[in-house]
Write a protein that binds this DNA or RNA. Structure first.
Lengths: 165, 165
DNA sequence: CAGTATCCTGTCCGATACTG
DNA sequence: CAGTATCGGACAGGATACTG
């Protein structure tokens, strides 16, 4: 996905993350992958996007290292698309997105939920500080410039210019 | 953002979430808002998008209930954009996105980090099951059809058709 | 300062047709 | 089955100019 990463991506982790998962279809393909689907026609049927778009999206995902394309049979040679470790690392993002929406719905109105496969218990995931267990929504947690912040970041996060937090 | 919510959004929480945060600029504006910025020219300067696009994005965010537009002075009347509670609920998503990218970088290479404002300690947030504290990346957690799943969802999540999970 | 209006280009994306 | 090729409409988004 390097192709459409913009210059400021070198600076902002949010922009970089968005360059990977910021596209609608990409998330849906990823969702299929996490559900165990691997093949072109499965994606096409499940997601309902055009084959040319699917080709383009898969190409991008392979180029960015999220998926690998592997032959699963010879003669004729057929390929399947498998998540890499890097691709699997995107799962918490997907989980957080779905959890955000589900939290707005009554439990009975949810069409897709996360469950513990062993017990069947529904999970309502939260983002936390692993050290204390405090939810990330706590206002004590704020973004600030990191060690690698460039000039433009410092102009935003230097203590002399940032208005809030 | 209802304007470009697609039909299947009624069914899939992922699609719905993406319709709110799936656009590049929207996330960056939100980031500014969480940092305490509220005004048109601040967004423009920080993010570097064209004024016409900014107008459009702000309009969408107000229409979707993420921001409210409020006058902060009369004569001439000037407006600022404030996060609603609904808007604030998006913060864990933003945090998760930034954390995902930062996790790939050496600590010294991070340009923007989450810290505890009181202690200065850097936070590396994780998505967990709040009941057990188990990270959401654990493969025991799988997506499945919820009570409100329609026919097309059942065709994906019914036990006879899903290949994985 | 806080936008609106207009032009223009590039890209998204569905539809359709074709291939080994 | 697993794509590729091409067309065409809609929209994203930068640049520029204008307004109270």
């Amino acid at each position: 996905m390097a192709a459409h990463i913009r210059p400021e991506d070198r600076e902002c982790p949010l922009s970089t993350a968005m360059s990977y998962v910021g596209e609608w279809w990409t998330m849906l393909i990823l969702h299929d992958c996490f559900d165990g689907y691997t093949r072109f026609d499965q994606f096409e049927a499940n997601i309902g996007l055009s084959s040319s778009m699917l080709t383009a999206r898969l190409k991008t995902l392979v180029n960015s290292g999220v998926l690998v394309k592997q032959p699963y049979q010879e003669r004729p040679v057929r390929y399947e698309y498998l998540l890499t470790d890097f691709g699997r690392s995107l799962r918490p993002i997907l989980v957080t997105l779905a959890a955000w929406r589900n939290a707005q719905l009554a439990p009975g109105d949810r069409s897709m939920i996360l469950v513990d496969a062993e017990t069947g218990r529904e999970i309502e995931p939260v983002v936390v500080d692993p050290v204390t267990g405090t939810p990330a929504s706590d206002p004590r947690f704020v973004f600030t410039a990191g060690p690698a912040a460039g000039d433009q970041m410092l102009s935003r996060y230097g203590k002399d210019s940032a208005p809030g937090t």
